[in-house]
């Protein structure tokens, strides 16, 4: 790890002001992503601004839905009764991720900003357009079995967000509250927070320099209470998703009144599929409907040399998740 200075911030204002003074500084919350990147020489901030003293770890019901402070820990959110009861897909996405130790450490804000597990990004010996813009993408002709098939570009085929939580949040219309260096807050739907790689895969989110994620709000809804997160991976536990599905359904009298669908592991970003939702709404909650929705969700897939299996895997994952929620 590079040498760096360390400072604790007591408020969001203080944190963002410190960041303004040292623009290359990094915020330190759980540290699980940041220190890993620093030890791999993929990040070398000259200063860490410890934001853990900020009062942003509250989980509370508000008139707009469930508000989760960005410094709440994955384990605390995943097992919180309000989350378990009102947003099971969110709870499951958290408790199926990482390990108990990492979940005790990792913050919600940090989780949303984790970096891709693409091996070429992670190994500084290789070119990577995300790490060194313009250097090339060896994954396109290389080991891409775990990379994305939706939303990819000629510059990058990584699943930029490899985790689970943002997939569930994308399905359930979560909104992020961000605070910038002027102390101004803005709200961004998580479906607009992540950017597709296009020609600029180094730019992954709409966050401005120094801007902090301070909270996540998830609207309450029948389809949120009837939601699930299904994760398919190479091991039964403690692995990233090859494909995952977060789904929420409101079924009345056998007919789907509302549907929410997002896929993980297959998209260049957490992949909300409004195409699948359109197929589902107004139709009977049957396997035929679910199959048609899954086909719609993967219609734009661009499989790479080693990951064509993900087209079928993602469809089957989605169908099974829908069956579980409808049952």
């Amino acid at each position: 790890m590079n040498d760096f200075s360390y400072v604790q911030a007591a408020s969001a204002k203080e944190a963002t002001t410190l960041h303004k003074d040292t623009p290359a500084a990094a915020y330190y919350a759980g540290g699980t992503t940041l220190l890993d990147l620093m030890k791999s020489n993929l990040a070398a901030p000259p200063q860490l601004i410890d934001i853990n003293p900020l009062p942003l770890a509250t989980i509370e019901q508000t008139s707009e839905g469930l508000r989760i402070g960005a410094l709440a820990r994955m384990s605390d959110v995943g097992e919180h009764p309000l989350v378990v009861q009102g947003y099971p897909a969110v709870s499951q996405s958290l408790l199926l991720a990482a390990s108990p130790q990492l979940r005790n450490m990792a913050s919600i804000g940090g989780n949303l900003l984790q970096r891709t597990r693409c091996g070429y990004f992670r190994d500084a010996a290789f070119p990577c357009n995300k790490r060194v813009p313009g250097s090339g993408c060896p994954a396109i002709a290389g080991d891409n079995h775990n990379l994305a098939i939706l939303g990819v570009s000629e510059s990058c085929i990584a699943n930029a967000y490899p985790g689970d939580l943002a997939v569930a949040l994308a399905a359930l219309d979560a909104v992020l509250t961000l605070e910038n260096q002027k102390g101004k807050q803005r709200r961004v739907p998580i479906t607009e927070f992540y950017l597709l790689p296009g020609k600029t895969p180094q730019k992954e989110t709409v966050l401005e320099p120094g801007e902090l994620i301070v909270a996540v709000t998830i609207p309450a809804a029948a389809h949120a209470r009837q939601s699930t997160y299904l994760k398919v991976r190479e091991r039964a536990s403690y692995a990233y998703a090859l494909a995952s599905a977060a789904v929420g359904l409101d079924v009345q009298g056998g007919t789907i009144r509302a549907a929410r669908v997002a896929l993980g592991g297959v998209g260049a970003q957490p992949w909300r599929s409004r195409e699948a939702e359109k197929v589902l709404v107004g139709q009977p909650a049957s396997e035929a409907t679910f199959r048609a929705a899954a086909a719609a969700a993967l219609r734009g897939a661009r499989p790479q040399s080693e990951n064509a299996y993900k087209v079928e895997l993602a469809q089957n994952t989605l169908v099974r998740a829908l069956q579980q929620v409808a049952a």
């Binding site: 540290g31 220190l35 860490l48 410890d50 990492l102 005790n104």
Partner: peptide, 12 residues
């Protein structure tokens, strides 16, 4: 709480 010492800064 169980925690990974390798990803924790001593100063923090």
């Amino acid at each position: 709480r169980r925690t990974l010492a390798c990803l924790t800064l001593a100063v923090a």
